[in-house]
Design a protein around this nucleic acid. Structure first.
Lengths: 229, 229
DNA sequence: TGCCATACTTACGTTGCCGTAGGTTACGGA
DNA sequence: TCCGTAACCTACGGCAACGTAAGTATGGCA
């Protein structure tokens, strides 16, 4: 089984010049870096839709149009690849979120953060799906079940500072950080399939809820920050 | 490997009268129902700590002190067992939550619900861990990634009714349902490892956030409902 | 006391996947 | 034009897990 045709190629930039008909020898030869990036892309996609254990190295290699040993050459194994994918996604998300925290007023901060997270979800859906799933390898940092929970801890200090200046117990910031992140994360996950309200509207409502609570809620919340897109 | 000693027995009620020394033939014979329940218990535990794919039928059987075919006899396979476990846990959680919705004032409803969920998390930790993980078999009901998200949809109508009477768009209830459930769920997940504030305190703060929002937050929130425990 | 249903076993066949040993081809520079 | 290095391949070995066929023991009941 599995004929030696040069498969899909999927995410490679230019997909080969000699790929007019599926004859033999239409395989492009990549540099180490190129191949590495391609494998990371494919790995991300597959891990997102099938999970870590549900994805086989064989499949990754096959989708890349190469054979297994190439993957082992680059990442030492499935876990190696997975680790790099996860690391990159966590970085990306955190960069986007922290980079968006530029407002002065705490409500603005909240808005920016919510928007940034939704941006991430929309742009890097696969990455988000991976971060939401549970990690396989005895949990990277602490003892968390999902990477998202792990991320929430990195939001703690931002909240902690705000708490301090407002006279609240800063020891409670972890709790509120988890709550806020959980709120946005699960809503985002739901939004991935529903796609019902527009992103901006979702963000507005989330901020509405987080800021005013159910009690002081506005029927037609508006964002105060100004954003292109 | 694996000597034929009668292993652990783990969750069986009385653990056998002839179990003085690990000689041969100390195995208890159960009725179909007993064995079924025992396997469900063990399955729940293992699925919680290793996930679906990380758990083998062999291990389940071994922990129950029987051999594989017994599991196949009862559930037809790993997926069968998993399905029953999940179904029971979802029922349990929903029963606990809906059963707790007895208050008149919406804030009271919220309190009850939050408390019920935390109760469930505390009492049936394994079940919660399973529900929080992602389902393997192409998603049971809709197209959701986690069972929890699935559960949130079952809270929609409760919120929808409340929204209607308050003049908000009831089409937004799914969004807010996801947000609220996500808030409590991720916090609960975090609380499983942290265990820092007491359950009642966590509930109070969650309600505080959900009700008043970050803006109108109280430094020392109190629950208004009266509960034993 | 002997029977027979039901609980349980041992022992396989099979598949899918991980990881590696060792050989082969392309490509760019001297 | 030759040659070495980096990219890539075929082909296994091995293992862990699923699922099943066919046989064995046990204990309640006539």
């Amino acid at each position: 089984m599995m004929a030696p045709v040069p498969t899909d190629e999927s995410t490679s930039g230019r997909s080969g010049e000699t790929t007019s008909s599926p004859k033999r020898r239409a395989r492009r030869r990549m540099t180490g870096k190129e191949r590495r990036e391609q494998l990371l892309d494919i790995g991300r996609t597959l891990f997102a839709e099938r999970g870590f254990e549900g994805t086989s190295v064989e499949e990754i290699a096959h989708k890349a149009g190469v054979s297994k040993p190439v993957v082992y050459e680059h990442f030492g194994g499935k876990e190696g690849l997975y680790a790099v994918v996860v690391d990159r996604e966590m970085r990306r998300l955190l960069d986007m979120v922290t980079g968006a925290l530029t407002g002065g007023h705490p409500r603005e901060l909240l808005e920016q953060a919510a928007f940034a997270l939704l941006d991430y979800i929309e742009q890097y859906t696969d990455g988000f799906r991976i971060l939401v799933r549970d990690s396989p390898v005895a949990q990277s940092t602490g003892t968390f079940a999902s990477l998202i929970s792990d991320i929430a801890t990195q939001v703690e200090d931002i909240l902690g500072r705000e708490f301090k200046s407002r006279g609240f117990d800063p020891k409670l910031s972890p709790l509120y950080a988890q709550a806020l992140v959980g709120m946005v994360a699960l809503t985002g996950q739901w939004w991935l399939n529903a796609r019902r309200p527009k992103k901006a509207e979702v963000a507005a409502h989330l901020v509405n809820l987080a800021w005013h609570g159910l009690d002081g809620m506005e029927a037609k919340p508006r964002l105060i920050g100004h954003r292109r897109s």
